[in-house]
Simulated assay, not measured.
Amino acid sequence: MVKKAQKNSAQDGEEYVSTVLSLLDEEENVVSDVQKEIFEDEIKELPPIKEGQLNVSGIYAYDEGDKLEVKIYVRNGLSDKLNLKMIPFVIKNSKGDILAAQQFNLSCLGELPPHSARPIKLYFDKKNVKVDKIPQDDWEVALNGEFNVTSTVRPIYEGLPEGISDEDKLVFNKFLAELPEMEEGQFSISTFSIGIQTNGNILVTAVMRNGSNQPITINKMPMTVLDAKKRAVKSESFELKDFTVSPYRAKICNFAFPTDVHPEQDQPLDGWSVAYKLVKINGKVNVKRK
């Protein structure tokens, strides 16, 4: 086994961020307290990193015969959560010579919280190792070239309907909190509710989320209502006027589909859904009257 000699690169006047151990939920209950203490001690010995950096630091390299096992810590020095995918790694010496190079899928690390560190073992195929032996005191793991890193965002509401009750606010906030986090730059539409009103309108309430750093304006929205058997029953393209969702915000929007069905009271359409595109209609609106 080759143990990595740690160097403290901190210099007076430079600001660094501390990173703390973060394990996946499924690991929290199986990793012993002793092992967690070892992880935490190793993290304390790692060189400091600056705010905004994504850092990898090697702990050891162990020759397993057909593979080279390398334990590293991935540290997120950003104030945002990160998701890592295909990441190219190299092992190099102090002269910059490449000793090994391989790409790894780090999606298994899950979502990295801000200012966190997670351990992982990389297994370099021997065909990707360019030397017979990794020098004991002269190696480091580094990121190499371009790689896929995504940060996640959780938009908050803007422009809630006037006069909305505190109870309804709680319901909408709970719905928004339970939606999956978005990758930076994404835009999503989620169906909050579908019901039919006494006036014959099928009312769809949707929540639109903007995960980008630019406002997004929607002028036209094609939509199709599907019944519980996923059959298209109503389809329409709505013209929206001045509907803009600000960066990292969510907005509620209602869409009404007129029908000839007039129930005695408003009722939810359980099991129904919405396709945010136009779908050919084959059937009729079939709603039981209470």
Rank of each mutant, 00 (worst) to 15 (best):
I38R: 10
D33P: 09
I38K: 10
L23K: 04
P48I: 00
E37F: 10
E28D: 07
K50R: 12
D41K: 15
E37Q: 15
E40K: 15
V30R: 06
V34K: 15
K36L: 02
N55F: 11
G52F: 04
V31Y: 07
N55E: 09
L24G: 05
K50D: 03
L21K: 09
K36R: 14
D41A: 14
V30A: 01
I49G: 03
L54C: 06
V30P: 00
D41N: 14
V20C: 06
L54I: 08
L54S: 00
D33C: 11
I43A: 03
E26D: 12
N55C: 11
Q53K: 05
T19L: 04
E51Y: 11
L21C: 07
F39Y: 15
N29V: 09
L21A: 06
D33G: 11
N29L: 09
E45A: 14
E26Y: 14
E26R: 10
Q53I: 05
V30L: 06
E26Q: 12
K36P: 00
F39G: 00
N29C: 06
V20T: 15
S32W: 08
K36A: 06
K44Y: 04
I38T: 12
P47N: 07
V31M: 04
I49W: 04
L23D: 00
D25S: 13
E40Y: 07
Q35Y: 09
K50T: 10
N29G: 01
L24M: 10
P47S: 15
V34L: 15
L24F: 01
I43D: 02
P47K: 12
E27Q: 13
G52T: 04
L24K: 13
I43W: 03
F39N: 01
I43M: 08
L21I: 07
E27P: 04
I38C: 10
E40A: 15
V34Q: 14
L21E: 08
E45P: 02
E28L: 09
F39V: 04
Q53N: 11
N55Q: 13
L21P: 02
K50L: 03
K36Q: 14
Q35C: 10
K44G: 00
S32F: 08
V34N: 12
N29T: 13
I49N: 01
E27W: 08
N55G: 05
L54Q: 05
D33H: 14
V20Q: 14
G52A: 02
I49K: 01
K50Q: 13
F39M: 01
V20H: 15
V31N: 04
V31P: 02
F39R: 05
P47I: 02
V31T: 07
D41M: 13
L23V: 02
K44E: 09
S32L: 06
E42D: 11
S32V: 09
S22H: 13
S32A: 09
I49S: 02
D41P: 01
